[in-house]
Design a protein around this nucleic acid. Structure first.
Length: 512
RNA sequence: GGCGGCGUAGCUCAGUGGUAGAGCAGGGGAAUCAUAAUCCCUUGGUCGGAGGUUCAAAUCCUUCCGCCGCUACCA
């Protein structure tokens, strides 16, 4: 029976350019998607862009264009970044697409028909000049002592008609959800915060606006457009073809994993399940929040001018070195720091020295001493069995790590085996066996090739391009690269191509 | 203010009741197949402070200090 696996990234808001944080979440989701494909699951991997709202309207104006053209441009840039990072998405949804608009309106109607939406009034501090609401804490004292907007514009307390979602009625059911499904929300820190947030009590949620037009019209009341979360969250269903229950993709619902940045964990863990409960739709299995990246120890911000475009890093260090670094550096779920030094260190020590050099020394021994022919699998010594045993448990080991979104731990598990391989080759010393026991040398090299094949197979989701090259050099055919294929040893006698370095050491250009 | 998290070797972190761990960095040695990469050994911590529970605490409780997060409509 084929298992289905549906994983999503957030849809990224198009009021600003893509940066390393967006890439991070997408790469993590990509690893999950690729991993499940290699495990034989049927995968649907969704990403996209969120394009409505006042901020996009304003950003477009500032750029002297209209909202749609602006959204087109930025959305294309996000898509370009996803492609540049080798994100294997199956669909890229945009909230301005007709399929999303009709689907979201259908979801709204369903929720409204079930009595969870009512018309009320949204109150707040409104600055006429900015055409914008501000939160109480955003206001600053003006020259005359009266509170004004951060832009300096005068504000007044106004009421605007708005549709509300009866979020307050879902507190108990949400707490029950977290209680009964400890894995629904991760990691632990985020989970605790959300639970205590919900325990504090929930207010109804304003889900429409009349103060701007760039949004999805509320069904039956064109004066309103949907506000933020109802529109955005619905993408996870609209991409599947909701409300058409016969749409082929609907079989992927409920989603197995919504991967999100920690800033929007609450919306995914509180609003989204509540909307779905109200609509009578099954809930996603898991929401997991990843942390933030600081840059050289500093918060990434436009004002500091240290916003990192991942495509620049790729140009300098190579795609897989960047993918690897982001997932390897710090436990997935926590915050992490991106520094040049750490990136170079990871690349040189773990990719070039540990793994790249292991492959290179093994394959050049095979090339030189076996004529590049893969030796047969023969009798194994205790050491051989021990090493291969470590390789054989990797699929199950990683499966459970991926299950709990422990991407860093998964990599650490693989690296333990890589280090064991380096110890093995030193202890066996096939270069010495060449003179004393050439047959045993072949056995040793064969064990190493098998170990490398297992390692490269498991690392494909993390570093698809490099591992493709490594598996090519190991003469593993395209059909032999799934996890299941690892149970069948490669037939001996194959001709291996001439080995070529896969992970070059990074050497800093000469300082002036 | 309320709730929560963290504070363990120079650095990044693992370890949740039973004689302190990993990787990197530092020191010594071996090997020379390999991208001068690798392997072996090793230095190093009164586990933030104090008090308590226990035969036994980094691990449970109390308190103090320091850092951080959340505290709703902000993408």
């Amino acid at each position: 029976m084929t298992r289905r696996f549906y994983v999503t990234t957030p849809i990224y808001y198009v009021n600003g350019a893509p940066h390393i944080g967006h890439a991070y979440t997408s790469i993590a989701a990509d690893v999950m998607a690729r991993f499940h494909r290699l495990a034989g699951d049927e995968v649907f991997f969704l990403t996209g862009t969120d394009e409505h709202g006042q901020k996009v309207e304003q950003a477009a104006q500032a750029n002297g264009t209209d909202a749609k053209s602006f959204a087109d441009k930025v959305s294309a840039d996000f898509r370009n970044m996803a492609d540049a990072m080798n994100i294997s998405y199956d669909d890229f949804i945009r909230t301005t697409e007709p399929r999303h608009i009709t689907s979201t309106q259908a979801l709204w109607k369903k929720v409204a028909d079930n009595g969870a939406i009512y018309l009320g009034a949204y109150e707040g501090w409104y600055a006429l000049r900015d055409e914008c609401f501000y939160g109480e804490d955003e206001l600053v004292p003006g020259p005359d002592g009266k509170k004004v907007a951060p832009t300096g514009a005068p504000v007044e307390w106004v009421k605007e008609p708005s549709y509300f979602f009866k979020l307050s009625e879902y507190q108990d059911r949400l707490l029950e959800l977290y209680e009964n499904n400890p894995d629904f929300l991760g990691p632990h820190g985020a989970r605790n915060e959300i639970v205590s947030f919900v325990k504090q009590g929930l207010r109804d949620l304003s889900i429409s606006r009349t103060s701007f037009k760039w949004g999805i019209p509320v069904p039956g009341d064109d004066k309103h457009v949907m506000y933020v979360w109802f529109d955005a969250l619905a993408n996870y269903l609209s991409a599947l073809g909701y409300p058409d229950t016969n749409a082929p993709r609907m079989a992927f619902w409920p989603a197995n994993l919504h991967l999100v940045g920690k800033d929007i964990a609450r919306f995914h863990a509180v609003y989204w399940p509540a909307f779905l409960m109200a609509a009578g739709i099954e809930l996603p299995r898991k929401v997991f929040a990843n942390g933030w990246w600081t840059i050289e120890g500093q918060k990434m911000s436009k004002s500091l001018g240290n916003v990192v475009d991942p495509r620049d890093l790729v140009k300098e260090f190579g795609l897989d070195a960047v993918r690897f670094f982001l997932l390897r550096e710090v436990p997935f779920g926590g915050d992490s720091d991106l520094s040049r030094k750490a990136l170079i260190m990871r690349n040189n020590v773990e990719l070039a020295n540990d793994l790249g050099n292991l492959a290179q020394r093994t394959l050049s021994l095979v090339a030189r001493n076996c004529g590049g022919i893969l030796p047969e699998r023969r009798t194994l010594t205790e050491e051989d069995t021990h090493l291969l045993g470590q390789v054989m448990v990797l699929p199950d080991l990683l499966k459970s790590q991926i299950e709990r979104c422990a991407l860093t731990d998964a990599l650490e598990d693989v690296w333990k085996v890589i280090r064991a391989c380096n110890a093995y080759i030193d202890h066996q010393a096939p270069w010495a066996l060449r003179k004393t026991d050439p047959e045993r040398m072949k056995d040793v090299l064969r064990v190493l090739v098998d170990a490398l094949r297992g390692i490269a197979t498991m690392l494909q989701p993390f570093m698809p391009q490099s591992m493709e090259r490594m598996l090519d050099q190991l003469a593993v055919t395209a059909e032999e690269r799934s996890f299941a294929a690892l149970e069948t040893p490669l037939p001996g006698g194959r001709q291996l191509p001439a080995p070529q370095g896969i992970f070059p050491r990074y050497v800093e250009p000469e300082q002036a």
